Simulated scan of single mutants.
Amino acid sequence: MDGDIEIREADRKILRLLYSGLDDARVATELGVSHRTVQRRVQSLMSLLGARGRLALGARAQEAGLLYSPDREVDGDHTTMLSQIRRK
């Protein structure tokens, strides 16, 4: 991956939340969208990044520079530590 992939900010948030360990249902709740919307966006992102599974999606997103350190900012509004997310 060369890091030149452009994605919508909503998709970037989905990637970040998934990378932080949340499942689709929790991502949907956090973003105020339906579970099905998250599933469709994940499938679209997997296709865009050439990933055959979710683990590969995270790796490809990281390689493309679409993520940040997983123990930092989850969304643009506030900082949440990974340990806090996993406890919920």
Rank of each mutant, 00 (worst) to 15 (best):
A28M: 01
A28K: 00
A28Y: 02
A28I: 02
T29A: 09
T29D: 08
T29P: 03
E30Y: 06
E30N: 07
E30Q: 09
E30V: 15
E30D: 14
L31G: 08
L31N: 01
L31I: 11
L31R: 12
L31S: 08
G32T: 04
G32A: 03
G32E: 10
G32W: 00
V33G: 05
V33M: 09
V33I: 12
S34E: 07
S34K: 01
S34Y: 04
S34P: 00
S34T: 09
H35N: 02
H35F: 04
H35T: 09
H35P: 01
R36W: 03
R36H: 13
R36G: 02
R36F: 07
T37E: 00
T37W: 06
T37N: 06
T37S: 02
T37Y: 03
T37V: 06
T37D: 01
T37I: 08
T37A: 09
V38D: 07
V38K: 02
Q39R: 04
Q39N: 05
Q39A: 04
Q39F: 05
Q39C: 06
R40S: 08
R40I: 00
R40P: 01
R40V: 04
R40Y: 06
R41E: 13
R41F: 01
R41A: 06
R41K: 09
R41S: 00
V42W: 07
V42L: 13
V42I: 11
V42C: 06
Q43C: 09
Q43G: 09
Q43V: 11
Q43E: 15
Q43N: 14
Q43K: 14
Q43L: 15
Q43I: 10
Q43P: 13
Q43S: 15
Q43M: 15
S44F: 10
S44I: 15
S44V: 13
L45Y: 00
L45W: 13
L45M: 13
L45S: 02
L45Q: 04
M46E: 07
M46K: 13
M46I: 00
M46H: 13
S47D: 14
S47H: 13
S47L: 12
S47P: 10
L48G: 05
L48Q: 14
L48K: 15
L49M: 10
L49E: 11
L49F: 07
L49R: 13
L49I: 08
L49C: 10
G50P: 02
G50I: 10
G50S: 09
G50E: 09
A51M: 02
A51I: 12
A51R: 05
A51G: 05
R52F: 13
R52Y: 12
G53E: 07
G53S: 11
G53M: 04
G53P: 03
G53W: 08
R54C: 09
R54K: 09
R54P: 08
R54D: 10
R54G: 14
L55W: 06
L55Q: 06
L55Y: 03
L55K: 14
L55T: 03
A56G: 12
A56K: 12
A56Q: 11
A56Y: 08
L57Q: 01
L57C: 03
L57S: 03
L57G: 06
L57F: 05
L57H: 13
L57W: 01
L57N: 00
L57V: 09
G58Q: 08
G58V: 00
G58L: 10
A59C: 09
A59I: 15
A59Q: 13
A59W: 12
A59R: 15
A59Y: 10
A59S: 14
R60Y: 10
R60E: 06
R60M: 10
A61T: 07
A61P: 11
A61V: 03
A61C: 08
A61Y: 04
